[in-house]
């Protein structure tokens, strides 16, 4: 298969492990994760940065992976939803809170919300309800009406969680 695009190798840390891939330059981070590295937990919905389904953390900060060049995570640390649980499979307090509070229905937005919540709790370990609501302004959930998601983050924060076992 021929490609009209140049390719480049990108090497980075994904959920604590070193990975590398050779990708065509226009590849977005979400495509690198889903199509090249088999990490399909991060989803594409709007593909225009406004829905949050594709949220991952790059060096601890949330980005829209649908509009972030894969080659721009070279040497960076990336965290996706697959990295939230511990290696032995035990869920993070945030993940458990989402289950306990029924903070998901179809689940398509859930990885994005979990990553946003992880970023929030890393920045602010005890957010108020208002702060959580505002932090999630850029993440759409079409199923739940948001209340249980906010409740889950409050609950996880109450247990002193920072959102992840992984890096």
């Amino acid at each position: 298969m021929t490609s009209p695009y140049q390719s480049r190798r990108v090497q980075f840390t994904l959920n604590g492990r070193s990975v590398a891939s050779v990708v065509p330059l226009p590849t977005m981070l979400v495509e690198l994760l889903r199509d090249h590295l088999g990490h399909s937990g991060t989803k594409v919905s709007c593909d225009t940065q406004v829905c949050g389904a594709c949220t991952v953390l790059v060096d601890g900060h949330p980005v829209s992976a649908c509009t972030y060049l894969a080659i721009d995570v070279d040497d960076a640390s990336v965290q996706s939803v697959e990295g939230l649980a511990a290696p032995d499979g035990s869920l993070s307090p945030l993940q458990q809170a989402f289950i306990d509070e029924f903070a998901l229905q179809c689940g398509f937005c859930t990885p994005g919300f979990l990553m946003m919540a992880t970023a929030l709790l890393q920045e602010n370990a005890s957010p108020t309800r208002r702060e959580i609501v505002e932090y999630f302004e850029g993440n759409i959930c079409r199923c739940s009406g948001y209340r249980p998601i906010v409740q889950a983050v409050l609950s996880a924060a109450g247990h002193g969680a920072e959102g992840g076992h992984g890096e």
């Binding site: 889903r34 990490h39 399909s40 937990g41 991060t42 989803k43 594409v44 996706s80 939803v81 697959e82 939230l84 649980a85 869920l91 993940q95 989402f98 289950i99 306990d100 029924f102 998901l104 689940g107 398509f108 859930t110 990885p111 979990l114």
Partner: peptide, 21 residues
């Protein structure tokens, strides 16, 4: 009873498979 959803674990770990996956 508000029994935990049986699909919740798959959906909070990114393991849940949708058609797009």
């Amino acid at each position: 009873k508000p029994v935990a959803r049986v699909d919740a674990r798959a959906k909070v770990t990114g393991a849940a498979v949708y058609t797009v996956d």
